[in-house]
């Protein structure tokens, strides 16, 4: 079971010194190697890591070499211990990072994942070398664990499948899903406690799913959108964003972000209103905010239509 996210306490903690690529770095006891890497100015790629969630270390793109360890270790979750010698750019590290990027790139649509082109170039990844990609599968929600159709190897299996559009608030494009578990953890015991989604199936056929893949309105989903907030690849997105991308009008360079306080109740969650062409196109929440930690409810997240009412009498 994952431990719930805890904000750092104000009490002073002991510093732990480790070396990263030969240079000494000191970080508070209990920090992860990733924190130390950041401290040392090492730019470490991460995908499944979330600043408001317990590390799941599922994507394995942040792996580093640790002296004395038989295998590489995930920097996002391994805690520092005094005297650790960590290497972040050895041949083994580069190889693993390259392969993780290739394996994901060959099976998942990473077109809306931030920084992917930069990392692909840095690690010399070539996702195309695994062959022609399989087209949309209509059977990704049918689970026969322990079985699969093998084919003859000429087509590379992918996550490709139809987008799930079953409500007006957010869309699920699971062909962009890297199965990082962040949405599951945000929906479950770490934040929302709605337990609407989980991983179903096993191995490559695993898929984020409601029970029997029922549509979201029939599930326990409360449409808080906290899963959308943590999704690292754009597999979960506001319906507004999805529609604008489809229409070719989504343009982040034309967007402004305004931080404000939600007006619905007295809790004081902060909102970040993303505005394009004088219209709110999506709502996020600052992860470091002491009240909401990036979380909102359905009203704060999606209840902004009235703001955009252009008529004086309130009708839109």
């Amino acid at each position: 079971m994952n431990a719930p996210y805890m904000a750092p306490a104000d009490t002073p903690v002991r510093q732990v010194t480790i070396t990263i690529d030969g240079e000494e770095v000191s970080v508070p006891e209990g920090s992860t190697i990733l924190t130390a890497c950041n401290e040392a100015g090492k730019d470490t790629p991460t995908l499944c890591y979330g600043d408001t969630l317990t590390p799941k270390n599922a994507c394995r793109v942040c792996m580093v070499e640790l002296k004395g360890s038989r295998v590489l270790v995930p920097s996002c979750s391994r805690k520092v211990q005094p005297g650790m010698e960590v290497m972040t750019d050895t041949e083994r590290v580069r190889h693993s990072r390259r392969l993780v990027l290739e394996l994901l790139g060959s099976s998942v649509d990473l077109s809306t994942t931030p920084r992917i082109p930069e990392w692909m170039e840095r690690y010399n990844a070539d996702p195309d070398r695994y062959g022609e990609r399989a087209g949309e599968s209509l059977r990704r929600d049918v689970h026969d664990p322990g079985e699969h159709h093998a084919g003859n190897g000429s087509i590379a299996a992918t996550m490709a499948q139809p987008d799930k559009i079953d409500n007006d608030l957010y869309v699920r494009e699971y062909d962009k899903c890297i199965l990082c578990y962040k949405c599951v953890d945000a929906c479950g015991p770490q934040w929302q406690n709605s337990f609407a989604i989980q991983i179903a199936g096993r191995g490559f056929d695993a898929q984020i799913s409601t029970e029997f893949a029922v549509e979201l309105p029939d599930s326990a989903c409360v449409f808080c959108g906290n899963c959308v907030e943590v999704c690292p690849t754009g597999a979960l997105s506001f319906k507004t964003e999805y529609d604008m991308r489809a229409a070719g009008t989504w343009d982040e360079s034309q967007q402004t972000t305004t931080t404000t306080v939600c007006t619905y109740c007295g809790v004081g969650c902060n909102l970040e209103l993303h505005v394009q062409d004088n219209k709110i196109v999506k709502v996020t929440s600052p992860h470091d905010h002491s009240v909401s930690h990036g979380n909102l409810c359905i009203k704060g997240r999606f209840g902004y239509a009235h703001v955009q009412s252009r008529e004086k009498d309130g009708s839109s």
Partner: peptide
């Protein structure tokens, strides 16, 4: 291995698939 991978981490989840595909290509 492809059938029995739990699917949690990328190297195994996708790697076992790519391993099987490459072997299939070689054999065919």
């Amino acid at each position: 291995f492809r059938d029995e991978s739990c699917g949690q981490c990328v190297p195994c989840r996708v790697g076992t698939v790519r391993q099987e595909e490459a072997l299939l290509r070689i054999v065919h």
